[in-house]
């Protein structure tokens, strides 16, 4: 995989392909192909990004929570998760035992103090290689985007988190903002070691026959193929101003998609919605990038932000 080795801030990645928080679980490593071999060897991933946890457990939003649209997927999961304590007691030991790739824990809080308390509690665990600070979930009221739409709020939060952790500190940005560059700069100046973008776009689907919204919360987060051009533009804009590396996601289904994000300015990519459609997608993407780089005798890092 040496052609596609990469890095985020302090974290070396054996593969520039990772998975997007909330779209991946250890379950995927247990799937088998027709020959009984693992469908998705974890070595093909540069890191494992866990589903966002919050301080208290969250039951999530009422159903229906999903709707597949013409060109992507709407979700309104609402950060269903076991909470910090449940994660540390039950999930983290299993992740530690199973993973031999870096673990990045995604988390979100409902106040700056809560974010700080969470990262302080997780900092001592050696099995956690980095954090993804989720300030961009569109489906919850108090956490998520409530923090990610104001550069001053991002700066204040990330400054405090950066003072606490020595691990990789990724700030995941929302596309639902007026100026992504401001958010990227705020996170960078506050001490983030890398950026992740994009989280889902606000989206909606309505059944014209009944007039009924397809999601219980009516508006949800839009991901998948349809968001790729938006994500590419935002990664490009962020990369124009930010010096820290970018972990890019937003409609990546093929290695060619991934390569486009590298050109736009990403140092690594994450596969999200595509996991649901093709559980083997991350492996194919990693292999495709590797073979392309090898055939052209180039390293993936030589292509970062080289859009012409």
């Amino acid at each position: 995989m040496r052609y596609i080795e990469s890095a985020l801030g302090r974290l070396k990645l054996a593969s520039c392909v990772t998975v997007a928080s909330g779209t991946f679980g250890l379950e995927y490593f247990r799937l088998r192909d027709a020959a009984g071999e693992p469908l998705l060897p974890q070595e093909s991933l540069g890191a494992y990004v866990s589903k966002t946890i919050t301080y208290e457990p969250k039951a999530g939003n009422p159903s229906p929570r999903l709707c597949e649209t013409e060109c992507g997927l709407l979700n309104s999961i609402g950060l269903q998760n076991p909470g910090l304590k449940g994660f540390l007691q039950n999930d983290l030991p299993v992740l530690k035992e199973t993973l031999h790739i870096p673990l990045i824990v995604s988390f979100s809080g409902s106040s700056t103090d809560e974010f700080c308390e969470m990262i302080t509690a997780m900092e001592p665990y050696q099995e956690i290689a980095g954090f993804e600070v989720n300030v961009s979930c569109p489906n919850v009221e108090k956490e998520g985007i409530a923090f990610g739409a104001d550069p001053e709020v991002i700066h204040k939060l990330v400054s405090r988190l950066a003072a606490i952790t020595d691990k990789e500190l990724i700030v995941k940005l929302s596309p639902n903002v007026t100026d992504i560059a401001q958010m990227a700069l705020a996170a960078q100046e506050a001490g983030a070691s890398s950026l992740a973008l994009i989280n889902t776009l606000w989206g909606m689907a309505i059944d014209w026959k009944t007039g009924k919204a397809m999601l219980s919360k009516k508006v949800g987060g839009y991901s998948g193929r349809g968001v790729k051009p938006v994500a590419l533009a935002l990664v490009y804009k962020a990369a124009q101003v930010a010096k820290i590396p970018i972990l890019a996601m937003g409609g990546i289904h093929t290695w060619q998609d991934a390569l486009e994000f590298i050109y736009a300015g990403a140092s690594a990519v994450a596969v999200g919605t595509a996991n649901f459609i093709d559980p083997g997608a991350p492996v194919k993407i990693a292999k495709g990038l590797h073979d392309y780089c090898k055939a052209n005798d180039i390293h993936i890092r030589d292509l970062i932000a080289k859009v012409k």
């Binding site: 779209t23 679980g25 159903s63 997927l73």
Partner: peptide, 22 residues
């Protein structure tokens, strides 16, 4: 039956209200 994406318990999309949770 429910709208479903992953089918293997990852995406939490097919949740229904059971007991005190989903």
């Amino acid at each position: 039956e429910a709208y479903m994406a992953c089918g293997i318990g990852v995406c939490h999309g097919c949740a229904i209200p059971v007991d005190q949770s989903y």
